[in-house]
Write a protein that binds this DNA or RNA. Structure first.
Length: 260
DNA sequence: AGTACCACCTGACGGC
DNA sequence: TGCCGTCAGGTGGTAC
């Protein structure tokens, strides 16, 4: 699930539910979700502490702790946050749980264990260490054009390359290409200036709209591809058939008629 | 150096 | 019912 708009939504959710409460306990249920931190260290760091503020970079969520260190979440393909009181809501995929002194819990649900929780000195140092590019919402046209200047890569893999732009994954890149009317299998070198301009504006538009709608599929525009990600579905623009094809190893949906 | 591809996990689904 | 292959909104390591 989690690409930039999803993580932004998680960020807002965490801010609304979990800030400024004393942490009573932290519980790691599966060590596979830990990155560069031990269970003991994480527990010790969190206990008695509080979550103070949040920051997002690409698909990464950083949460400042009262004692100045930072908690980092990466959601992988199946991660999300859950805040609840009733312990019935705790499921087997809740790999990590913070319990606040008010009796509520914040959990990191991560079915496929491809995400992680970590501890870092600052978002900046973690971003640098992981070689993340600038956040997709922060880049300007000049920079965008620059990253598309590597001729051999396909456009889609460039948009999804986190070291070039942070935040775009498989779903939203398909959406951007659909809106722009550009085939995701094209090579960077085949793009004309006008294609790059359209791609750039669609990139910003798609991400912002998704955030505004809190990524709820039912609230997203009916003309979005996201709702028709299935082979043979009808394209909402031309009534043609949606096709699925692999580009750089990822299943991509597109309309062959609308996207050249 | 830049790019493509597999492995890492769990689970759901369709075909036989 | 079970087994198999395939797929899933991510990404690190590795091989070209």
């Amino acid at each position: 699930m989690p690409e930039l708009p999803d993580v932004e939504t998680f960020k807002n959710y965490l801010e609304k539910t979990s800030l400024n409460q004393k942490i009573k306990n932290a519980d790691v249920r599966n060590n596979k979700i830990l990155k560069k931190v031990s269970k003991q260290k994480l527990n010790k760091e969190l206990k008695g502490n509080a979550l103070k503020s949040t920051q997002r970079h690409g698909k990464h969520l950083f949460v400042a702790l009262e004692n100045k260190s930072w908690l980092e979440f990466h959601f992988g393909m199946t991660g999300f946050l859950k805040y609840f009181k009733d312990i019935e809501e705790d499921t087997k995929h809740d790999r990590f749980m913070i319990t606040f002194s008010n009796g509520h819990h914040l959990t990191f649900d991560n079915q496929r264990l491809l995400g992680y929780v970590s501890l870092t000195d600052s978002p900046q140092s973690s971003i640098k260490e992981q070689k993340l590019g600038p956040d997709a919402l922060d880049i300007d046209y000049k920079y965008f054009k620059e990253i598309l200047s590597y001729p051999r890569a396909t456009v889609k893999s460039t948009l999804m390359n986190q070291s070039k732009i942070a935040g775009i994954g498989n779903i939203y890149s398909d959406e951007i290409f659909y809106k722009a009317g550009i085939n995701p299998g094209r090579k960077n070198k085949d793009l004309k200036e006008k294609d790059i301009k359209i791609l750039f504006s669609c990139l910003k538009k798609v991400l912002k709209t998704a955030i505004e709608k809190k990524t709820q599929p039912k609230d997203l525009p009916k003309t979005w591809l996201l709702r028709y990600r299935e082979q043979g579905q009808v394209c909402p623009k031309c009534r043609g058939k949606i096709k699925r094809k692999k580009f750089s190893g990822r299943g991509s949906y597109y309309c062959p008629k609308c996207q050249k």
